[in-house]
Design a protein around this nucleic acid. Structure first.
Lengths: 185, 185
DNA sequence: CGCATCATACAGACTGGTTGGTATGCACTC
DNA sequence: GAGTGCATACCAACCAGTCTGTATGATGCG
């Protein structure tokens, strides 16, 4: 809710039930704790919740649709909508002021994008996706759009903008499918 | 760079060349200054730079393309990329902790979305846009996607993700055009 | 006109509270 | 007894906001 910098260390300590000594013994600084959270919590979370399920999907088109749906379900949980996407939050707050955060977040976004890109390319090879689509660009667009949609919904205090965005993106995915080469319309 | 809360009042004061007395005389609080900035700077900026040019465009499809291009040009100016989109920045930082900010930002996003929505509907009436597209949803998606693309590019320290995103969105716009009813392929 | 009165528009020192970080000390293990 | 893992008191820095003082200009009045 408060972001990294406005979050009081004392509050974090109290919530975690540890003392300042323990924290500085293990992490060295507030920043060190932040890095660890990104590496050991946020990154695995994105992997497990969005990246891996997409990788395992048979059809990248369906995989992307399910990714959007999954995110919407997550945001629909009580309280989560108001918190927003942790990646988007940290990107906005920290990428301009701390290289350590920026690089760690870039790793997450890149891995996310690359996985989608690979999936689309495999889809192209198997004739599930039109061969003239720029897989990398589409992958970038999907990651960016869903980040933006999270922000929009967060500010609206309403999941509706996210849903609207997802529907348009789902429709767009259909337009990436190859047209039937033969057969009746 | 620092966001609203981490920005020191003293620094703002020094940069603006005014004193604390003057600020508190006119704005009452730091928050009051923030509200004024959103209302009197950010909102007009979004209007003049993105909303109005789109309204004046003849073809909503072309209008949206130019909107993306305009945003990309803006982000390409030295230093701006690292700052990111002020609307996106404030949404992420403030919408969860301050209703005043949230409402003012929601006004901007809504006006932006509504203008695009109206443009698309007029386009539909004139046969420039397929009648089966959900204008409101598409409008929401465009605003959200460009916000997200700004964040992605900001974190990458590179305009490329924005460009990629814009190209896919431009291609998507073409798919919103009605298919030719008659004539040779 | 000349002077008093008052409101506005600041200037800047000051304050109470909070922050991240540190120094010291203690318990426990090897 | 040396080292590790922590607890806690403490600190300097910084913050938004307040308070007092003052310069300036308008207004009223004799």
């Amino acid at each position: 809710m408060n972001g990294f910098r406005a979050a009081s260390l004392e509050t974090i300590l109290a919530a975690a039930g540890v003392t300042k000594g323990a924290l500085y013994h293990h992490f060295g600084s507030k920043r060190g704790l932040g890095y660890a959270v990104v590496e050991e919590r946020v990154k695995p979370l994105v992997r497990e919740r969005y990246i891996n399920p997409f990788s395992e999907a048979d059809d990248p088109t369906e995989g992307l649709k399910r990714m959007g749906l999954r995110m919407e379900q997550e945001l629909s949980k009580t309280g989560i909508l108001l918190l927003g996407c942790p990646v988007n939050n940290l990107v906005t707050e920290m990428s301009g002021v701390d290289e350590g955060f920026r690089c760690r977040l870039a790793e997450i976004l890149e891995e996310w994008k690359d996985t989608i890109c690979d999936g689309l390319r495999r889809g192209q090879a198997r004739g599930l996706v039109r061969s003239d689509v720029d897989a990398a660009a589409v992958a970038t667009m999907y990651v960016a759009s869903y980040q933006g949609a999270c922000g929009f919904a967060k500010n609206a205090h309403d999941i509706e903008p996210f849903t609207a965005c997802r529907k348009v993106l789902d429709a767009h995915l259909e337009s990436l499918r190859p047209e039937r080469v033969s057969g009746p319309h």
